[in-house]
């Protein structure tokens, strides 16, 4: 559905997007996951036709991204990061306004209903809550019944409840047969929503697979984390089952990626006993995209 080939964008001599290529299948939820400043928004905006790529090309539904721009815009719906709308127009007026820009438009009532904004039709945009505003932003992205929808960090800044309700909307858009392209820096969001995820860092796509596949690529399925005593020189890398050992970003916690949790834990406890090292904050969990990102870049996805 979307084909991206060797996209490059240079700002002030820096390649913010560096030869990015991938394909998005029809009807899937495709995620672009990466930290702030990884180049996600620039990549999306080049695909949407809002920015001219310095190199590379984009094809959407067989249409050339730079030569058939207006046809592309009829096919896609966009929600930009922190969408700004006219504060002094009502929800209904905004939908009618954006609907008028397209050849085809869905009925206002239907949109209000499906985005849970029925009671807000006559409310000014400035009086909407963050969640309502974001639902309106997505409503006007699908006002012309597009086949492809771009959502740039749709849940950033929303409270957990509003985030859940947005996730339901994304899944419903997919169930309606649309292709959804979303960017996020929440790994949980990518895991929950996306059929496939491209991990982006410093302008490059460093991994691309389904969330399960990415985790499988770690060749480990579990993570052991603990806080060793200060200045402990005990090594843990050679414990049974350990594939990878890393220190957390702040340098206090040890992160062990293992494919044999029981053996690793047994070895860890006896090693600690032998050396007289106290293990605090010991916990185990299954590996997540966060660990994939950590392993690939040596960095954490979200700060803190």
């Amino acid at each position: 559905m979307i084909r991206v080939q060797h996209l490059v964008k240079v700002y002030d001599g820096v390649k913010v997007v560096d030869r990015v290529s991938f394909e998005v299948e029809e009807g899937e939820v495709f995620g672009l996951l990466g930290p702030n400043g990884a180049g996600k928004t620039t990549t999306m905006e080049m695909i949407e036709g809002l920015r001219e790529p310095d190199e590379g090309r984009v094809t959407i539904d067989g249409l050339d991204g730079s030569r058939q721009r207006s046809a592309v815009k009829e096919t896609i719906g966009v929600q930009l990061q922190s969408t700004a709308l006219f504060d002094h127009l009502t929800v209904e007026e905004i939908i009618l306004l954006y609907g008028s820009f397209y050849r085809r438009m869905r009925p206002v009532k239907e949109l209000l209903r499906s985005f849970d904004l029925e009671g807000k039709a006559k409310t000014l945009v400035k009086h909407l809550s963050g969640g309502q505003r974001q639902r309106l932003a997505i409503a006007i992205a699908v006002v012309h019944d597009p086949r492809v929808i771009f959502l740039d960090e749709p849940t950033t800044g929303l409270d957990p409840k509003a985030r859940r309700s947005l996730w339901e909307i994304v899944l419903r858009l997919r169930d309606e047969g649309r292709t959804v392209f979303l960017s996020t820096h929440y790994m949980e969001e990518a895991e929950q929503l996306c059929d496939r995820v491209a991990i982006m860092d410093a302008g490059k796509v460093i991994a691309l697979d389904s969330p399960a596949g990415l985790i499988r690529q770690l060749a480990t399925d579990s993570v052991v984390e603990f806080l060793p005593e200060k200045d402990s020189t005990v090594g843990f890398r050679d414990l049974d089952g350990v594939k990878e050992m890393k220190w957390s970003e702040d340098g206090t916690a040890v992160v062990l990626l293992t494919d044999d949790l029981q053996a690793t834990l047994r070895g860890l406890i006896s090693r600690a006993d032998e050396q007289g090292v106290a293990l605090s904050g010991l916990r185990t969990r299954t590996a997540t995209l966060e660990d994939v990102f950590l392993k690939r870049t040596g960095k954490r996805l979200t700060e803190g």
Binding site: E48, G49, L50, K73, V78, L80, T83, A84, F86
Partner: peptide, 13 residues
């Protein structure tokens, strides 16, 4: 500055 124009640029307008 607020991105209102860019949002419109995302449409065939």
């Amino acid at each position: 500055e607020r991105g209102i124009l860019r949002r419109m640029q995302g449409t065939p307008l």
